[in-house]
Nucleic acid binder design. Structure first.
Lengths: 224, 224
DNA sequence: TAGATTGTTAATCGATTAACAATC
DNA sequence: TAGATTGTTAATCGATTAACAATC
């Protein structure tokens, strides 16, 4: 739906400001904000200024204000940010209030590790079923062959894939056809989306380990 | 050791150029280069130009040449890069030829997943022992209490920690005392290094999942 | 009201890209 | 030699930081 905002721009009824699209750098910081706010919440902190939060997070207050302002006016001059409100807003932005259901295609160690991470432990995302892997917790487990029959009814939007690289790439069109819109890929191999609407996060679990190895080596080389 | 390079700068015997320190952005791309080069190697490709590699990696040739030139003159004008040589060089930069031995403090799902990632499967890093967790593969397993006694002789430089957050932070000084210089932290909680020489990589396994959730939601909002 | 702190605009800094001389 | 392609310098672009007027 397009609207002509030029007409009476000054008295625009629409409350939403036209904002610049969030940059990739800003988006990548959202999980971190979410984490710190969850922490503050559990400590019972009700409000926080950008300066105080910046100090805790070891970033600049400027960056925090810029980042948040891209998504909305979440603070209040002279007061700061309401922790509960801001946490809720960021949860919403991250899609954690949308009730996403997640299915596991294969059940490798990485998938199991993810299941015990905060996002699933807190129920921000809902683990719904396993296909082609051992049952975990209360999730029903099906064979890969049952995917086309069972998956649509589950209403899942996100799939966590830990199969072989070939099997993973091969199952993407079926996943798309069954309503999956995002894929978390733990196969150590780049997956290509079968259509433009599907989002894929390729995870290379060993990257932090390689960077650590680099750092351990690099610190030795400081001669002067 | 400091040297005065001003004297006879033109005929400097020293082969190593004085280069600018690699930026964090460049360093973070090294694992990706390493991955693509390993792939090319396994395909039997002997040489590649920055342009050809750029096309495969969906980056600019300029960036590749800039990134690599920070670490050395690895290419040759009119030829490109020797794949085997470049792969070896990057392996070296990443510390994968230093024979790092890795111990596992706790053995959670994330640690197990890491053990089946390329870096360990290929033996670029060597899994040496487990403390406070189930034995895996051929690694000997010890209790946490045995750490001070057994760890020094193992000669490990890197530790992968998957304990509770408190236990993890508490064991860092002991690890440092036993020769550990880098820690990969899978506890979902920020760990602080006990001294300036220890490097820590805090891994938040659910971050890619949160970003995926964001992307799945954000794509819905494109109204016009 | 006065003090505090935001959202935003302007200034700085760093990273990416383009261009090209050096050279294999 | 001629063609190809690097390493590097200069130009562009984007992200971070600083400053401050708006305002609670």
């Amino acid at each position: 739906m397009k609207r002509i905002d030029q007409v009476k721009g000054t008295f625009d009824q629409n409350k939403e400001k036209r904002r610049t699209a969030p940059s990739a750098s800003t988006v990548k910081r959202l999980p971190r904000y979410h984490r710190y706010l969850a922490r503050l919440l559990s400590e019972g902190t009700l409000r926080i200024s950008s300066t105080a939060l910046a100090e805790r997070m070891h970033v600049t207050a400027s960056q925090i204000r810029q980042d948040l302002a891209v998504f909305g006016d979440f603070g209040q001059q002279g007061y700061g940010y309401n922790v509960r409100y801001l946490h809720h807003k960021i949860s919403r932005i991250l899609g954690l209030t949308a009730g996403h259901r997640v299915v596991f295609i294969g059940m490798g160690d990485a998938a199991r590790a993810l299941l015990s991470s905060p996002v699933f432990v807190r129920g921000d995302l809902q683990a719904a079923a396993v296909f082609g892997g051992d049952a975990v917790g209360e999730m029903p487990a099906y064979s890969l062959a049952d995917m086309e029959r069972e998956l649509p009814a589950i209403g899942a939007t996100i799939a966590v894939v830990s199969l072989s690289a070939e099997a993973a790439q091969a199952c993407l069109p079926t996943l798309a056809a069954c309503g999956i819109r995002g894929v978390l890929n733990y196969t150590h191999t780049h997956l290509t989306p079968p259509d433009e609407t599907m989002k894929i996060q390729n995870v290379y679990l060993d990257e932090p380990c390689l960077l650590l190895s680099y750092q351990v080596g690099a610190s030795e080389e400081n001669e002067d």
